[in-house]
Simulated scan of single mutants.
Amino acid sequence: RAGVPAVPVPVTADQPFWAARLAAVGAGTGPVPFRALAEEEGAPDLLAEAVARAVREPAHRAAATGIARRMAAEDGAGEVLKAVENGG
């Protein structure tokens, strides 16, 4: 929503799905496994490289900015309200 590239670090539940979606639409790097950050000796370098890729590659910023614009134009709450009022 902020329009900046992301470095997803999925931990549990649906986070791996959304991390993969971020990467698929180009608004972030590929997911950095939490386990790799928690257990590997080179974890700081792994995370630093992912952050560097996120800010260095203009395509990530362009995708994130475009998605933020589309989200700002949506009335998500209004659509939910309509669905609830119409019974689903």
Rank of each mutant, 00 (worst) to 15 (best):
G42D: 15
V11G: 14
A52S: 11
R1P: 14
E74K: 05
A24Y: 03
I67C: 03
E85H: 11
T12Y: 09
Q15V: 06
T29V: 12
V55A: 14
L37A: 08
A2T: 09
V7P: 01
A20M: 07
K82C: 07
R69A: 15
P8R: 09
L81T: 06
A19N: 02
V80P: 04
R1I: 08
A36V: 03
A62P: 01
G66C: 09
D14M: 07
A54M: 10
L37Y: 04
E79P: 00
R56T: 14
A54Q: 08
G3E: 05
N86I: 00
R1W: 08
V84C: 06
L46N: 03
L22P: 00
P16K: 02
G3N: 04
H60S: 10
G28K: 04
A36K: 05
A43S: 14
E79L: 10
A77N: 01
V51C: 12
P8H: 10
T65R: 15
V51M: 13
T12G: 09
D75Q: 04
A24F: 07
L81K: 07
F34E: 08
F34I: 11
A6S: 10
H60A: 05
R53A: 15
E49N: 13
V32P: 01
G28P: 09
K82L: 14
A27F: 01
F17H: 12
A36L: 03
V11D: 12
